[in-house]
């Protein structure tokens, strides 16, 4: 090897110190990533472990009877599952049309100036603390909407008001995700439709909406996950802080999974000392986690299936 080539090799080797630094940085980031995985895994494992102990203690058969009264050792999962479904269902009946409608308006119809005005308003609604919405739900939504139009003789606290409140809560979320999806549809597709003599309505309904369908489905499912996980509105407006009989009547008080957990954890149900009641917290938490996980997986599937088609 000539001298010149030797010098070049030395240059090409670069600085060992820099390479070492690179390795250290990489190590730090790996540790951070690993830590978040470990934390998540620990939480899930703890959930599973306590939940299994809980089911073992009270027996699987006891998960299917007579309502949710942890104080009396009655843990009917169906009661709070149905409560969650009723609240989520009503919530989505409110949030899907309102949110998607707002998204269509903002993305397709609103002039830029109006959109600039409306988007922050949507964000303000999204920023309302859920406890405020909870108060609003039982003090205004219940008498003015639920009692007046839906029930006639509703109780002061009921699942209906909680559902509508949750709907208002998730509407901005649905609107914002769906609007992003529709605005991502290239302008050239709209122009193609207009160029064929399509009006705005057919362009929106037949071109933009189908092209954005995966994002729109995702918006609805994310909204649903959020509705299922919502606690405060339900705890305030849904009633039934203690326990609840099995009922799907939205005019009556009821308990959701989140509401039940809140009541258990803050001791509103005076079960602090009761071991199996305390463990039921983990069990309900696990069910909630699985439900939300299932929805996320489902939304991923739908998005992929729809994409593949086109």
């Amino acid at each position: 090897m000539s001298n010149a080539a030797g010098g070049l090799l030395l240059e090409l080797e670069g600085s060992p110190a820099r390479r070492r630094k690179e390795r250290i940085v990489r190590g730090i980031f790996f540790a951070l990533a690993a830590m978040s995985v470990v934390i998540s895994a620990t939480i899930v494992l703890a959930l599973i472990q306590e939940a299994v102990q809980f089911v073992g203690a009270i027996g699987v058969g006891d998960l299917w009877q007579r309502g949710w009264f942890p104080r009396r050792g009655i843990f009917d999962v169906r009661t709070i599952l149905v409560g969650t479904l009723v609240v989520t269902g009503i919530g989505m009946l409110v949030a899907a049309p309102l949110g998607l409608g707002a998204a269509v308006y903002l993305s397709e119809y609103a002039r830029p100036r109006i959109r600039k005005l409306l988007k922050p308003i949507l964000e303000i609604i999204a920023g309302i603390p859920s406890i405020v919405l909870g108060v609003f739900a039982f003090s205004w939504i219940n008498p003015q909407i639920v009692d007046r139009f839906l029930c006639g003789d509703a109780s002061f606290f009921n699942l209906g008001a909680a559902g509508v409140g949750v709907g208002v809560l998730v509407t901005p979320l649905v609107a914002s995700i769906a609007e992003d999806a529709m605005r991502a549809v290239p302008m050239s597709l709209r122009e193609g439709a207009y160029g064929l003599g399509a009006r705005k309505r057919s362009t929106t309904v037949k071109i933009v909406f189908p092209a954005a369908i995966s994002g729109i489905v995702a918006a609805v499912i994310v909204g649903m996950s959020r509705a299922i996980g919502e606690t405060m509105v339900v705890a305030l407006a849904g009633g039934a802080t203690g326990g609840s009989l099995f009922s799907a009547d939205y005019c009556q008080p009821g308990q959701t999974m989140t509401g039940a957990m809140a009541a258990l954890a803050i001791g509103g149900d005076q079960v602090k000392g009761d071991v199996s009641a305390f463990q039921s917290l983990y069990f309900v938490g696990l069910v909630l986690f699985l439900l939300t996980l299932g929805l996320n997986v489902l939304s991923g599937r739908i998005v992929r299936r729809v994409r593949k088609k086109y």
Partner: peptide, 20 residues
């Protein structure tokens, strides 16, 4: 304009088939 565009069609610079 919609009636105009039904009589005067357009083909664009970049092919823009609908995702259908």
């Amino acid at each position: 304009p919609v009636e105009v565009r039904r009589r005067v069609g357009m083909v664009f610079q970049k092919p823009n088939p609908f995702p259908k």
